[in-house]
Design a binder for these strands. Structure first.
Length: 639
RNA sequence: GCCCACGUGGCUCAGUGGUAGAGCACUUCCUUGGUAAGGAAGGGGUCACCGGUUCAAUCCCGGUCGUGGGCUCCA
């Protein structure tokens, strides 16, 4: 518990609560707020409902139904979490506790990490505090006073924060016995946090500095009602169910060997999907004037010295020796592409030169960040380098945006978020070229009607870029496609082309990946579809299931006919019950199951079951194959 | 890389200081069955690896490797 001195309220004369201001004759916002409001925006400033709006002020109320309101709600929940932790573990010093996507966390400095039992206790305590409907009370006090209080309480982290961030007057909040440095606003009382769940704990560092103070972070979430919480928890379950590592195991798509951490072993089923995916991409690239190349996996160190990787990327690279020469394993495909460009005399007539490469890149990632197919040490980039003039950038980017949309829509990803990142502090290239490139990107974005977010100063040192984030079936976003302008490569590799006047000029390079890493895209697609791959990609498209031994011959004949038409068919003629085989196919998410028994043989029709749908419908073989062919040809998203 | 947890048959996981179990999967036999698991029998594990403590280690301790979650979305 807090020592008594710390508990004492700051003396009255030091406190300026809004209600004590002269204009306090007016009524607090709360009295006119809708029931679900958690805070208000008065003239653009977020405030507590206990505050009073000045005459004629513009007032808007925030509810958890909107992002800003939910933010306040979760922020208050974080305070509640810290309050519970301080009740139960008085020695835990509290750090920071912001709301995050889907919840909030709070960091504590403790000797011992929190166990699962601790988390359960904390959740229980939080719920007790909710029942008490404790008010969130704002207190404004002088900086020195706040520092004194936190120092008395032994909260050295808070002292540090107040010293760093506090103005002359410092805003703090009290909820029950818990007192925290915080700008607010907050919900009126803990009672509104009706549904909460403590999720997990893990390690973090004070201010994110791995050399700094280790902290124990507790993740939790909260909602204004239990239904929403239940829905969220169901979604978490669903995410687990769709985990590409689980499905990869179940459907025998890929392996990751202990002997080769961070690298993927593609099994036949997964390899087939990847191959079909890449063939499909190749078709698109052909039509858009790309020329595919393949460059060496390992290149002499001199190349990496020239490209700058040796200076800036060394710790992420693998090196090998051959003879007395040192070689670097490529972490990116750019130098190879640059050498292809340089291998011939280029003229302005050759531009834009679009060189694509499905290049296998190796990057030494720290062991702690590896994860399934999403964070690996070896991956295939669906890369391309477009060599063009600065004035061609816009047209190329427009074409790329079109390609990105086309590719992602084909898999049912309709929600693409676009980010434009501009020149960072440290960068190469002239002011004029940056300006031209940035405006080319911006114009392309505008013309393609893409709503985008601006990330000023977040571009690469060699040029501005556009990143794409896709939203999957569970509402999670993933960074995939990227378009980057590069002013550095042409210089580093002395690339040039002949202008109409016969002069030599440096081309601008556009790097771009559409799928990003093929491995990561595969993971995304697996989780997005829950393993129910669209028919054109599915490892097995049809499971042919004979009912009894006497139907095996007809089933084999049918399977043969389907295979002759190019379909991928599994003939399940094991001596098992039909229901068992149906289940087998359903679990593997085979798009179609065709059951063959006496009835089918007599009628000549097929009984076709579609995955995920109970029962079967009769269909003529011709209809069925026509339907299959159509699904494949159109690359239908479902089934 | 750092912190925490975990590593037991192909998979999911139980378990104990006295050289190990379940379900699924697999094999064989019986069953010939109408849209998500028929029955029986059987095979399969140096309990991740290396070292230590102990009469005895899968279990306790240390190390290594691997896996998982996390490592600021800034009061």
């Amino acid at each position: 518990m807090f020592r008594s001195g710390a508990l004492r309220r700051p003396r009255k004369q030091n406190v300026t609560t809004p209600s004590e201001k002269p204009q306090a004759a007016a009524v607090p916002l709360r009295s006119t707020a809708p029931r679900t409001a958690v805070a208000a925006v008065v003239d653009g400033r977020e405030v507590d409902l206990s505050e009073v709006a000045p005459e004629g002020a513009e007032v808007r109320f925030l509810t958890p139904a909107e992002p800003d309101g939910l933010h306040v709600f979760r922020h208050s929940s974080a305070h509640l979490l810290a309050a519970a932790v301080k009740d139960l573990y008085p020695h835990a010093r509290y750090g920071v506790g912001p709301p995050i996507t889907d919840g909030y966390y709070y960091d504590f400095e403790t000797a011992e990490p929190f166990s699962a039992e601790d988390l359960a206790r904390i959740e229980k305590r939080m719920k007790q505090l909710v029942k008490q409907r404790l008010p969130f009370q704002r207190e404004i006090l002088p900086k020195e006073e706040a520092i004194r209080i936190f120092r008395e309480q032994g909260e050295r982290l808070k002292v540090e924060l107040v010293e760093e961030k506090g103005g002359e007057q410092v805003s703090c909040y009290r909820v029950g016995q818990f007192f925290d440095f915080c700008e607010g606003p907050h919900v009126p009382h803990t009672g509104v946090i009706r549904a909460l769940k403590v999720l997990s704990s893990s390690n973090a560092y004070w201010k994110g500095d791995a050399r700094g103070i280790p902290m124990q972070r507790i993740y939790a979430t909260s909602f204004p009602d239990r239904k929403q919480l239940a829905r969220h928890l169901r979604r978490l379950e669903e995410a687990k169910r769709r985990d590409h590592r689980r499905i990869g195991r179940l459907q025998r798509l890929f392996l990751i060997l202990e002997e080769a951490p961070g690298q993927v072993v593609w099994l036949p089923a997964g390899m087939g999907i990847v191959n079909r995916l890449l063939e499909w991409m190749r078709g698109k690239l052909d039509r858009r004037g790309y020329q595919e190349i393949r460059t060496p996996l390992i290149l002499n160190e001199s190349v990496w010295a020239r490209s700058g990787h040796l200076d800036h990327y060394r710790e992420n690279m693998y090196f090998v020796e051959g003879g007395d020469q040192g070689y670097g394993v490529k972490p990116m495909n750019c130098p190879g592409a640059a050498m292809v460009f340089r291998s011939d005399v280029r003229s302005f007539r050759d531009l834009p030169l679009r060189l694509s490469e499905f290049g296998l890149c190796h990057r030494f990632e720290p062991s702690g960040v590896l994860s399934g197919l999403t964070r690996v040490r070896a991956f295939t980039q669906d890369d391309a380098h477009i060599y063009c003039r600065l004035d061609q950038v816009k047209a190329e980017v427009l074409d790329l945006m079109d390609l990105v949309a086309e590719v992602y829509e084909a898999f049912g990803f309709s929600d693409l978020q676009v980010e434009l990142s501009t020149r960072p502090g440290k960068s190469v290239g002239t002011d004029e070229s940056w300006e031209a490139a940035e405006s080319a990107l911006l114009e392309a974005l505008t013309e393609s009607d893409a709503t985008h977010v601006l990330n000023p100063g977040d571009g690469a040192f060699y040029g501005p870029k556009i990143d794409f984030h896709v939203r999957d079936a569970l509402g999670r976003t993933h960074q995939c496609a990227t378009i980057q302008v590069d002013f550095s490569q042409a210089e580093a590799f002395d690339l040039s082309y002949a202008t109409p006047e016969g002069a030599r000029e440096r081309p601008v390079v556009i790097h771009r990946a559409i799928l990003g890493s093929v491995e990561r895209f595969f993971a995304l697609l697996t989780e997005h579809t829950g393993g129910a791959f669209p028919t054109w990609l599915a490892p097995i498209q049809v499971a042919v299931i004979p009912i009894a031994d006497r139907h095996r011959e007809a089933a084999a004949a049918l399977a043969g006919r389907l295979r002759d038409q190019g379909f991928r068919v599994d003939l399940d003629d094991r001596r098992e019950k039909m229901g068992y085989k149906i289940r087998h196919a359903e679990v593997r998410r085979v798009p179609f199951m065709v059951v063959l028994g006496d009835r089918e043989i007599a009628s000549g029709a097929l009984s076709v079951r579609t995955r995920g749908r109970k029962g079967a419908r009769p269909r003529s073989e011709a209809d069925f194959t026509a339907r299959l062919a159509e699904l494949v040809a159109s690359q239908a998203v479902s089934p």
